[in-house]
Amino acid sequence: MSSLFLIPVQAENKHTYTIGVVPQFEIRHIRRIWNPIIKEIEKNTGYKIKLIGSPTIPDFENEFNAGKFDFAYMNPYHLLLAQDSQGYIPLVRDHDKKLYGILVVRQDSGINSIKDLHGKKIGFPAPNALGASLLIRANLVNDYNIKFKPIYVKTHSSVYLNVVVNQTAAGGGVQKTLNQQRINIKGALKVLHRTPEVAPHPLAAHPRVPVEVRDKIKNTFLLLGKNEIGRALLAKIPIKKVGEANVTDYSPLKKFNLEKFHVK
């Protein structure tokens, strides 16, 4: 029955499309970010856009794998999954910064190379967090061939605190969240390693959405990136510098073999 809702509906010359957003934040926050953008899209395209919230990331994953969303803003690894399951096509992404994970240790820990972490506990927010967990774990195993004990501590802040209080020898995070930590926490830590960079989160479209609709939506985003107000709206997603996204942007990610590290 749910599939009925997945079929684009045209009513009174107005098509309604659904959009899903990876629940990195709580749904209310996501709605505050996306509602003004959706309004702009509706204004520019004349389509009706409906934001569908997913309670958890696994729900979100299940839903895009089932093709529930016409459009979806997801992380790069999700895109790989979505390409495989439904053939989602990336439309736009941030061109400002690439996505990478960082591995932090205490300044005074005496750990200077990744090899030093062999056999140690390393904290991560969650198993499937892309930058802070998947990329790092894959990187460490694939490229440095060390064994370690992953400890999942829920949030980035928690990762950093666990390192500071020596509960874990190192922790996986991203530069942005590290920058957000209190100065004394941040000051107690040093970045031991950065993973190779990957293209950041894309907005992808389900292949069932007609090409012109996809283009209209893509153009609306690109248009928003051209004015101050639009950029401010997109920055909250966060997309600081919007640009087109291609399938090839995400092919380097495949090398990480993230499916081996993804926890279902």
């Binding site: 904290g123 400890i151 999942y152 501590v153 829920k154 949030t155 980035h156 802040s157 928690s158 605190l161 666990n162 209080v165 509960q167």
Partner: peptide, 9 residues
Amino acid sequence: LANDLSELH
């Protein structure tokens, strides 16, 4: 138990 030091703090 959740190792959530951030929440603990």
